[in-house]
Amino acid sequence: MDLSVVDPVALFVGLVAAATPLLFAAIGELVVEKSGVLNLGVEGMMIVGAICGFATAVKTGSPALGFVAGAAGGCVLSLIFGVMTQYLLSNQVATGLALTLFGLGISALIGQPFTGVKSPTMARLEIPVLSEIPLLGRLFFSYDIVIYLGIALVAAVWWFLKFTRRGLVLRAVGENHDAAHSLGYSVVAIRLAAIAFGGACAGLGGAYLSLARVPQWTEGMTAGAGWIALAIVVFSAWRPWRVLLGAWLFGGVTILQLNLQASGFLSWLQSLGIPAQAQYLSMTPYLITIAVLVVISADGSKARSNAPASLGRTFTGSG
């Protein structure tokens, strides 16, 4: 065993990059759920964002346009969900699941000509002076611009939900759509906007996978990231900054377990008779999510107040 080969700075940098697709998808889904809609199609919107972003970046040679197209792709797909659930009043859970299956299928179809193609590389943002500070430079200033955008987005969502009037209206719609409706707010329009925002965020997360993290297009490449994003929203108890924490935690254990394996640390524990499997480590965020759920449902007063009361309920708009 040689733990000295694990460079904590590299670990943190890897963690932040691994967490970014999750961060985008989860912060988008948080806004959707805050408006009272449960969209289980995150995985489908992510993979469509991944292929739209990749295809556009390859065709235009610009990763920036790729990210825009990824967001647009996720947004368009989410609006299918929006129309189905808000106008045609279909069941949100079933429609969301169908959206995932549809997204996986259509992305494979669009992606046929793009397998094995190289994408243009994204320039790393080299902030002058700052990125040259010995330790801090690598820790904080060595990422591509999308990672900073992700964190800025969390701050923006937090500010929007907490301090703006529109944020208050969105939360009101999620808490009690009948009351919001009777005050004259258009529940359907507000929810559609939230759904579109969530789709765009998921699409961005997907595009980050195919343009920066892997970077290539492969069918089914999100491999469950969308479901993890859903878990992060619950883990965060619908609080924006905790989404950041959750994304880093969920992304972090993956990177950590790989590092511990490669350094031989897990093997060393096992040779001492401690049953340390990489799987245990991978399990922990999910266990924490379950624990959070238990806390939420056990002690109402504080935690539950944050879960949107109308989450997943269909709004019929009568009366």
């Binding site: 890897g14 691994a18 697709p21 996978l209 993290r213 892997v214 290539q216 492969t218 089914g220 490449m221 999100t222 491999a223 469950g224 990231a225 993956t254 990177i255 790989l258």
Partner: peptide, 8 residues
Amino acid sequence: FDPALEAD
């Protein structure tokens, strides 16, 4: 098969 994990 998990491209993101394999890349990591």
